[in-house]
Design a protein around this nucleic acid. Sequence first.
DNA 1: AAAAGCCCCTGGACGC
DNA 2: TGCGTCCAGGGGCTTT
Length: 295
Amino acid sequence: MPELPEVETVRIGLASLLEGGTFRRVTTRRADLRFPFPERFAERLAGARVLRLERRAKYLIAHLSTDEALVMHLGMTGRFHIQAPGEAKPHLIGDYEYSTGAAPKHEHAVFEMQGGGRITYADPRRFGYMLLVPEAELAAHAMMRALGVEPLSAELTPAYLASRAAGRRSDLKAFLMDQRIVAGLGNIYVCEALFRAGLKPGRPASVLATPTGKPTAHATRLVAAIKAVLEAAIAAGGSTLRDYRQADGQAGAFQETFCVYGREGEPCVRPGCRGIVRRNTQAGRSSFFCPVCQR
DNA sequence: AAAAGCCCCTGGACGC
DNA sequence: TGCGTCCAGGGGCTTT
């Protein structure tokens, strides 16, 4: 699922149950996801109250009354189902409805809240993970400290992008995928932002800066494109893709407005453009772009 | 320090 | 229906 807009959608959905709530009982159904669950995970959470649920990049961070933070990453396929106290059955956050009948596969952790709420975490590929980090160590934690700016914050400016891109050898695709530069973009939104900015993914990142390190017009357009595409995606409730879609789901809607992602061979959406969307592989991942609009 | 591979894991789509 | 192959919103880790 999860790039920044999807994680933000999940955060909003989880916050209603988590914020102000207290863990009554936590159960893990296996020892590890990508990494082992933290030592004494269930005991450390039981009785803890969630003060605030934050998103940073693609991480969810639950700040706890115990002076620890529960840090969660969804990997590629992590999903939460929530069941509020009055609800008859669980429903998925930000993706699709709870599957019918059969026990949910790959459900690895269950969080039962005081008052009857229930949250489950499922993750078929298990690229996600959960950490418990003392609040005092959070900012310096290996997973957090190198993260770049939040793209929707005032910190993402043309000048910032130019300063990080100057002298770089990598192409724009790899530059934007790098969480140390801009934190929270992934394959979809990098492709979509580059389309909106009219920039080909294979262009060198250094086109964002002049020889003296000042932002170019490309940098200005790219910043605007990143912010616009993320805001639109969040407003639409994120994106839902092929294999995680269910027939009767309340899926995110943003995938219906992709301009290039997943549209190889289809005509460019820009009115009057005769381009056909192409796909190539960069750093082991697919890039989609219009060879006419994007230069 | 930056860049490029490899790897983790499961499941769906597609071709034969 | 049953293989085998390729591909997938992630990023950490190791090597160059």
